[in-house]
Write a protein that binds this DNA or RNA. Structure first.
Length: 571
DNA sequence: GCCGTTTTCGGCCCGACTGTTTTCAGTCG
């Protein structure tokens, strides 16, 4: 069972308790448990298997630890089952409608006997909601909009989609003279793989005028709220954007506060409290006296912490690291010199070797690995031994003509069902760069899949394990594999682990990368480009790397050609 | 229900906005 599934169970318990008007701190404790499990870098099931104690995880006490064991064994916990019996089915779904919390859901259920999205929609359309005391016409409309949002977007969008929206929005913001400064915060700034909404901080001469000008932005379809401090809108693609106004003295604390994560903020607040101070979005203060607030750095410094890069702010040990001066020098896009997976018209790519090489050089790369598919991947016209060798020759021939640039003759070889590789050992040995990936037969037991991948890693001819989990965000679940064992095999056999930069892959994901890093793993960033455009994706991988606490040393793409040749020398 | 350099009890983040109400509850981040 995956951490996210376990987290959902605790989230549901919290929802049910809230509907029952249970103790608010107990409810919060359950939500903290869910959050804590989600941000964990290790798999809970593996931890239990390895005999590690669960109560060492923050927010998880002995009671919760017991429930987790029960969940792993039975797939559920008695606590949840008992609670479900006391609350009408479907009410937890209603709580996900924006604008509805436990109290209103309960009220709607009691007054109108509503317990499904469909039923709630009908009640709104029949104007029965406005008849309830405390609710009105506007609430009814808001609920209908909320249901529509829930049904269409379902919440989060890929990072790249948010980035596109922000690009276009920033052009609009930059034209507004009243705006003196604006910055993006939230999960976008932390580089999360999916984004729930965009948070934008604004310093402006005239807030009213600025809001008016912002609302001229054409893609805005709905204004959720508008006040002196905040303007919330929804764009036509469903993305919510929150604009918040701040003045210079508090801009730093506001940026910190709205960048989050929530868990990181709470911990900072506790530290401030320990000093007898107060930290909120308006500043760090002692009584009426202001201690810091203009910049993020000033706040961290006052709390005796070094500045923490936004990508690390998840309360995953970064605060302790900052206190001890152990914040790593994270890898940056400027450190990256090349790319380790790309495809051409030889298999399923759209451009020739030459076009890919030229595009890579234009982007400033020093090297590019051309790694077309092997024969098993028939729908991509994968290469057999003969084809692969011929392709390698063509790659090398072109490479020799290119000054100060190396085209690595490579292959993305398929890991077959039994863990053997799809091409002859001799063919693979002749390659400069071999990426091995699972594409087919994904439905296997965890044990069999682990053995399969580990066997490939141990083959002695593989340089890199490609997209290790094989997930597509929001579309395809990861393969069932013991990633700890796979990482261990990679470390022992000097196999690099890929961070695939495709926007909906980002695989290996950051939480697993962080654990793999601790286990001694080394990584490569790969665009997995199937066209010249795809080569532009490396920043996405850098984002994942930074969220995984990786430095230049951990990432092979930071090496020069000479260093790379040395690192790849076959023994 | 969790947590502890205020440690086994007594706290637990808190301010903005909306809608509905006439002083505030509910929701959100």
């Amino acid at each position: 069972m995956e951490n996210s599934q376990i987290a959902e169970i605790f989230e549901e318990i919290a929802d049910l308790l809230e509907l029952r008007k249970d103790n608010e701190f107990r409810i919060r404790a359950y939500r903290n448990v869910a959050q804590s499990i989600r941000s964990l870098s290790a798999r809970i099931e593996d931890m239990v298997e390895h005999g590690e104690s669960l109560s060492q995880i923050s927010d998880i006490g002995s009671g919760t630890a017991e429930k987790i064991l029960e969940i792993l064994e039975r797939g559920t916990t008695q606590r949840l089952e008992d609670l479900r019996k006391t609350v009408p089915k479907g009410l937890t779904t209603l709580m996900r409608v924006p604008g509805l919390g436990a109290k209103r859901v309960m009220l709607l259920n009691q007054e109108l006997d509503v317990s499904s999205l469909e039923g709630l929609k009908r009640a709104c359309e029949a104007h029965r909601v406005r008849e309830i005391e405390g609710l009105g016409e506007k609430t009814e409309e808001k609920i209908l909009r909320g249901i529509a949002t829930l049904e269409s977007a379902g919440g989060r969008v890929l990072y790249t989609e948010a980035a596109e929206q922000l690009d276009s929005l920033s052009a609009h913001l930059n034209k507004i003279e009243e705006i003196e400064r604006w910055e993006v915060a939230g999960s976008f700034r932390r580089g999360q793989e999916t984004i729930g909404d965009l948070d934008i901080l604004i310093r402006a001469k005239d807030r009213e005028k600025t809001s008016d000008r912002i609302l001229q932005y054409r893609p805005i379809v709905d204004v959720t709220s508008r006040g002196k401090e905040r303007l919330s809108v929804r764009l036509e693609n469903g993305l919510q954007v929150d604009f918040r106004y701040f003045d210079p003295p508090s801009f730093g604390t506001a940026w910190l506060y709205f960048t989050g994560s929530k868990a990181h903020n709470i911990k900072l607040r506790r530290i401030a409290q320990d000093y007898g101070w107060k930290l909120n979005e308006y500043g760090l203060s002692k009584g009426d006296r202001r201690l810091a607030g203009e910049t993020e750095e000033s706040v961290y410094e006052r709390l005796k912490l070094s500045w923490i890069p936004p990508e690390m702010r998840e309360d995953a040990g970064e605060i302790e690291a900052a206190r001890e001066g152990r914040i790593p020098q994270l890898v940056e896009i400027g450190d990256i010199r090349g790319d380790f997976q790309s495809h051409t018209i030889a298999s399923d790519g759209r451009n020739s070797i030459e076009e890919m090489a030229n595009a890579a050089r234009k982007l400033g790369f020093s090297y590019l690995a051309v790694t077309d598919h092997s024969k098993r991947v028939t729908m991509a016209k994968g290469l057999d031994d003969k084809g692969a060798k011929k392709h390698a020759s063509a790659i090398r021939e072109l490479s020799e003509k290119l000054p100060r640039f190396w085209l690595l003759a490579g292959i993305e070889v398929d890991i077959l069902k039994d863990g053997r590789l799809d091409l002859a050992e001799e063919t693979l040995e002749s390659m400069d760069w071999v990426v091995a990936s699972v594409h087919y037969d994904r439905a296997m037991t965890r044990k069999a899949m682990t053995e399969r991948v580990v066997r490939a890693v141990k083959s002695g001819v593989v340089h890199c394990l490609g997209h290790p989990l094989g997930r597509i965000i929001g579309k395809r679940d990861p393969i069932a594999v013991d990633i700890d064992q796979v990482v261990e095999a990679c470390v022992e056999n000097n196999v690099w682990i890929e961070i695939n930069c495709q926007a909906d892959r980002l695989d290996l994901p950051d939480n697993y990368c962080r654990a793999a890093r601790s286990a001694g793993a080394r990584f490569v960033l790969s665009t997995d480009a199937h066209s010249t455009d795809g080569l532009r994706r490396l920043p996405l991988g850098v984002m994942v790397a930074r969220r995984s606490w990786l430095t230049k040393e951990h990432v092979l793409n930071t090496r020069s050609i000479a260093q790379l040749k040395k690192a790849l020398r076959r023994s």
